[in-house]
Write a protein that binds this DNA or RNA. Structure first.
Lengths: 204, 204
DNA sequence: TTATGGTTTAACCATTTGGTTAACAAAGGT
DNA sequence: ACCTTTGTTAACCAAATGGTTAAACCATAA
């Protein structure tokens, strides 16, 4: 829509501020005033552009999911072998998340809070689909390239190994007695360790 | 309801109600009135027994963590081999969580919200320690029982594979297009699949 | 029976919070 | 210039919310 903006892009500033606050504090913990402060504007502007907290939140959530979904989709549906998919996804995903540390926890938390969100984002064009990956796993198992494994279980294993450490980072830092720096190093090592771990398990 | 009993564990009723509400809605989303309603008592009683929302929440959180920590600790520090530890933990943990589905997400979410909680629960007697597990992994690697692997990474892998599917269950249900029943069946299969997957990867 | 002390309740309070309003400022078009 | 549309602000509002209070309740000891 062609709004004649005095200020360059207030709508975008709001979205950025809302992203920061919502991802850090969640829907319930976030305050409209804090978002306005972070954006450096009046609170009424939030309602002018997004009508309600709920709608602003949905815009942020939708944006976040649109950032994450293609990562998954690309990794699942390109033309490489399962082995290469594992390697590429592990490497790329850990790099990606290091740049967006709040993202996975935000998505997971809010999906738990309100599973109805799923229906909304399932219409998202880039919503990840598992069909190709599953048939590919079956094929490679039949060809003898992989040990017998169910595609769904393998998929769960891959995302668990890659995503969970970021979601549970406070717990892991506590048990391993490491700080932010140590955690980063650990995740860096996982870029290779995790794919080795998976490949070791499934390759014949 | 029989009001004739004087303090027949009102405190416990409150704690149970608070657990239900906090685990479902989180600290920020929970309402004191809802906890009171769920406990079937007056809102003022919450403050009479626990002084504030914060303190009531901490009681619930501490309780939850005390339920989860021994599971981890027992699995890490008994005298069985790494292979048996993987098998036992995977089997036991998935059974345990099926009975407490909100637990892992609750712990993880609130630890992310306020990392300072960690200091409080670290004093917990049963707080999981990794020392024995790490030296045991090193030993078994040296003896040639296991392929070379870092104990910390193996630990992260084990808990990721076991915990993440429960934390991300809405996401997994969505992508795999399954309902609650299908999810339960999937997790049931994981009791053996996950330990096989891990053992496959690390056993020489 | 009555005094006592912990327990329970209804009513109340101060503050926070999402949301609205009305007036004002800045462009854009004619 | 003038009017219309869009953008922005300060002040305001009603509802919700965590927390408090003062009185009532009730089992038990004296």
């Amino acid at each position: 829509m062609a709004k004649t903006n005095k200020n360059q892009d207030t709508e975008g500033q709001i979205l950025t501020a809302a992203k920061n606050v919502f991802q850090k504090k969640g829907m319930d913990g976030a305050r409209m005033q804090e978002i306005a402060d972070e954006a450096g504007i009046n609170k009424a502007m939030l309602h002018y552009y997004y009508r309600s907290k709920q709608l602003l939140f949905e815009a942020v959530f939708s944006n976040a999911f649109s950032l994450l979904a293609p990562q998954l989709n690309k990794a699942l549906n390109d033309d490489s072998s399962i082995e290469d998919k594992v390697k590429n996804f592990t490497n790329n995903y850990i790099s990606f998340i290091s740049k967006h540390p709040y993202l996975p926890n935000f998505i997971i938390q809010e999906l738990n809070r309100n599973p109805k969100f799923f229906e909304k984002i399932q219409q998202n064009a880039a919503f990840p689909t598992l069909e190709k990956f599953k048939t590919q796993v079956t094929e490679e198992v039949e060809k003898g390239m992989l040990k017998p494994i169910d595609g769904e279980q393998l998929f769960i294993n891959i995302i668990s190994l890659n995503i969970f450490p970021f979601v549970a980072s406070p717990l892991i830092k506590g048990i391993l007695k490491i700080d932010d720096k140590g955690f980063k190093q650990l995740m860096e090592r996982r870029k290779t360790d995790v794919s080795e771990f998976i490949i070791n398990s499934i390759k014949k």
